[in-house]
Amino acid sequence: MENVKKCCANQQTSKTLLKAKEELRDIKGKEGALIPALHKIQSVYGYLPEEALMLVSEELDIPITQIYGVASFYSFFSLEPKGQHIISVCLGTACYVKGAQNILERLSSELGIEEGSTTEDGKFTLQATRCIGACGLAPVIMIDEKVYGKLSSHDIPKILREYK
């Protein structure tokens, strides 16, 4: 039983790896291909796992140290897996002056995690983001792709319940 499971899991990863390889094919010949490649990997895996970065290194012939340097420079890239739902709190200026900090604090206390981390059960990642262009509805948060606007901190528990 144990063995069977393991073998499936391996198959799973190699499938994703194949998909990643496939995605990289179009990019290979381009000038400045590294960042587009990292975007592709992140869209396949949701983050940048080591095995995929090794693949990028091989395919694009770029040393892994350089890839790590680039990946860690940009905040959009994540070297860690993220939660099932990503909660982004807009800390753009318009939201900030309308009390976005309180919203972030409330979320942080409701979820019991700091900004930038993931709940233990892997359900939520809480992160701050910049203007998402819904300033008219400030303060706003975005859970996955859905935007919630004109919030006050006591709306938070109700919104979280939708995802529990």
Binding site: I35, Y74, S75, F76, F77
Partner: peptide, 19 residues
């Protein structure tokens, strides 16, 4: 881009396109 404000600055932007 990939979430770096400094990449709005033109010389940094150029580095970023170069990978």
């Amino acid at each position: 881009g990939a979430g770096a404000f400094v990449c709005g600055e033109e010389t940094a932007l150029i580095r970023s396109i170069e990978g």
